[in-house]
Design a protein around this nucleic acid. Structure first.
Length: 465
RNA sequence: GGCGCGGUAGCCAAGUGGUAAGGCAGAGGUCUGCAAAACCUUUAUUCGUGGGUUCGAUUCCCACCCGCGCCUCCA
């Protein structure tokens, strides 16, 4: 089955392959580093991670660029309030962002450029846009003229009248010719960071940076551009306008947008009290695995309703899979031989087909769990041998290359030797039918993150995380 | 008002023109000293509402209702 991706540009699912047949060139709008990212941001980044992984496991190479927006109005305001230079202010949040990504096992894109390191490229792009006749200057700021671009709006399909009517146009701010026009190069005010340019001192407009960095690392036309749905307009529309008017070529072939995460059915907001960063959730004792699972289990084009019940359910689901993996790996005696079964192969096929179907992660999970039940059942009835176990482990391996939730996070643990000693002590107690002592030992270990399980071949144990 | 996404069991959620995957939670059972894990049974005659097309619709068409989002910085 070919990989099908929903392309916002055509509003249909299209078969995807990189234009050069080998390397997928992909750009993602990254964080604006004026604060910690919230779980809504992370939903989008987690989706991008799944896309990344699926692309590579489909046999293509990948060159993925994700920008860091480190100069922008909110940053300037926040740094100014904190009384530090913006570079110093943003550095802490860049670091925090990478920490958060690491917790969620989000693979690092091949290139993570910062906007402030690419000012010359941005200036060059403005010059090209100006040369093509799509820019004009007012009071030291340079704007993009939308009226000169008939194709404007092809991504968002907002009709221009509604943009005018619905928008609270910031006409007070600058003297734009047309309310829809957007700034390419912003004249800096006193005290604001500023770079020299042929159009006067200033700083890049927000939309400009993505166009410039995408072209710098991926070329004038590339395969996939991702971001949250809210970015579709105006950000992505404006990226297209700038880029295509400068190059005369299509910018991104596929535009892929992740739906938003809601909390308790509502948009996250600080005033609603339902606004969470990753750190908030970790501080409450939730596991990063469960958070990753939850973020990724709902297909990206569907709004994801985040709840703490859902988070607990995600943790239980992971536990089921880990228990199954343990059962395959060790501990439970399997009868000799292996049994003819197409279940694992079928599950792998369904798993891949689901992901090929516009990253249907829910369907992919269904395939895995269906297999888990069948395999557990076969083990109980003695029709599952070591050969079948290796098939099952291969399936789990494939699953985990995408979902990456099977390895528990490393944590402080009771030393193995001590566990072994206590397990032996408890076994002796049980032999002496001193169940009170046996239960005390088991409960004590459980409280310290070690789970005991009595089976036909003795007591098995494992760390709970 | 315009443009989108969605409304499937208590919760999350897949899916198809032919009669509802999967996960979590709940109930009963098997196993166990008791547990845990696992398994079995059970939980939607029904897929927002009303029409229509069809032999047959949750799935296609129309209308409507509801939730969320974008149209202004925003993942």
């Amino acid at each position: 089955m070919p990989f099908k991706l929903y392309n916002s540009l055509s509003r249909t699912e299209e078969a995807f392959a990189p234009s050069d047949g080998d390397t997928v060139r992909m750009y993602s709008c990254g964080p604006t580093v004026y604060n910690y990212v919230h779980i809504g941001n992370l939903r989008t980044f987690a989706f991008q991670d799944v896309l990344r992984r699926h692309v590579r496991h489909s046999g293509w190479r990948l060159r993925h660029v994700m920008n860091i927006t480190d100069v922008e109005d909110k940053i300037i305001a926040a740094a100014s309030a904190a009384g530090v230079p913006i570079g110093e202010y943003t550095a802490q949040y860049v670091e925090a962002f990478f920490e958060d990504c690491a917790h969620l096992r989000l693979e690092r894109p091949e290139v993570v450029p910062a906007a402030t390191d690419h000012i010359p490229q941005m200036i060059g792009l403005v010059q090209r846009i100006a040369k093509a006749g799509h820019a004009y200057e007012v009071d030291g700021s340079t704007y993009f003229r939308i009226s000169g671009l008939p194709s404007y709006g092809k991504l968002s399909r907002l009709d221009s009248r509604s943009v005018l009517v619905g928008a609270r146009v910031d006409s007070d701010e600058y003297g734009k010719d047309d309310a829809r026009d957007f700034v390419l190069w912003k004249a800096s005010r006193k005290g604001e960071p500023s770079w020299h340019s042929p159009f006067g001192p200033g700083r890049p407009g927000w939309h400009l940076e993505c166009s410039a960095m995408a072209m710098e690392y991926l070329g004038e036309t590339f395969d996939i551009h991702t971001g949250g749905v809210d970015l579709q307009f105006p950000h992505h529309e404006n990226e297209i306008a700038q880029s295509e008017s400068a190059t005369g070529k299509p910018f991104a072939r596929f535009w892929v947008h992740a739906e938003h995460l809601l909390v308790d059915g509502k948009k996250m907001s600080k005033s609603e009290g339902n606004f969470y960063t990753l750190r908030d959730l970790l501080d409450r004792g939730h596991s990063p695995d469960a958070i990753r699972y939850l973020l990724v289990a709902t297909p990206y084009r569907k709004q994801l309703n985040f709840t703490f019940d859902g988070l607990r359910a995600a943790a239980s689901s992971i536990e089921r899979l880990r228990n199954f993996a343990r059962r395959l790996e060790d501990g439970y005696r399997l009868p000799d031989g292996e049994y003819a079964s197409a279940a694992a192969a079928r599950a792998r096929e369904q798993f891949r087909d689901s992901l090929d179907d516009d990253l249907n992660t829910a369907g992919a999970l269904g395939a895995v769990f269906e297999y888990v039940r069948a395999a557990n059942s076969a083990m109980d009835s003695g029709t599952f041998g070591p050969g079948n176990a290796s098939e099952g482990l291969a399936l789990l391996g494939e699953f985990d290359r995408i979902f990456d939730v099977m390895r528990p996070p490393s944590a402080a643990r009771v030393a193995r030797g001590e566990v072994e000693r206590l397990v032996e002590e408890r076994a002796a107690a049980r032999r002496g039918r001193n169940f009170a002592l046996a239960d005390r030992i088991r409960d004590g270990l459980a409280a310290r993150g070690v789970i005991l399980r009595d089976g036909p071949s003795g007591t098995q144990w494992h760390y709970s995380e």
